[in-house]
Amino acid sequence: MRYYQGLIKRKFKDVVGSKYESIQKEYSDYILTEEEMRPREIKTILLPLDFSVTEVSESICELLSAYENATVTLIFITDAQISEIIMASLDKEAGEEFIQKKEDYGTRLLDDYEHCLNSRSIPCMRRMFLGNKQQDILKIAPDFDLVVLPKCYASNHPDSCAVSGDAILLAQSLTQPTIVF
């Protein structure tokens, strides 16, 4: 890759031969190999959604249209732990009502995002399930080339949230490129 070779030549212009190899080995935490430097081909995109997302971001749909032939998987997760607490502290009916309300909201949100993406010819898949908003994303994410994360993802206070702790933690823990919006 021309860009990579130029960069290495500039950064290590006073280093020759095997010395560079030993530096690369010793400082591998800071140096990318040529293979690692190559941007991923973005074919699969994960877009997690939840109750904290109050509106569709047209600008994100527009941005994702840059990845021709990529498929976006929309995932809406309802917090299983909260529904269990409601069931335990109130009753089963209250817990089921909680889940139903969240899933109704999720269905509308997924519809809106699907429309936003499809209108730009971006194919979509959708999933909705009860689970752990953070752990499940960490488990699923390795199957995708790019993760696109709402800033207040998993926040319990979306109205007053600037960015959620879960969004920061996920963005820093994932191993694939991530867009936070």
């Binding site: 941005l63 800033k151 960015v163 920061i168 963005a171 694939q176 991530t178 867009i179 936070v180 919006f181």
Partner: peptide, 16 residues
């Protein structure tokens, strides 16, 4: 990253 994302209204792409 945390300092920026807290203030910015623009999407941030983190390259890996």
């Amino acid at each position: 990253f945390p300092k920026l994302i807290n203030k910015l209204q623009v999407p941030v792409f983190m390259a890996r």
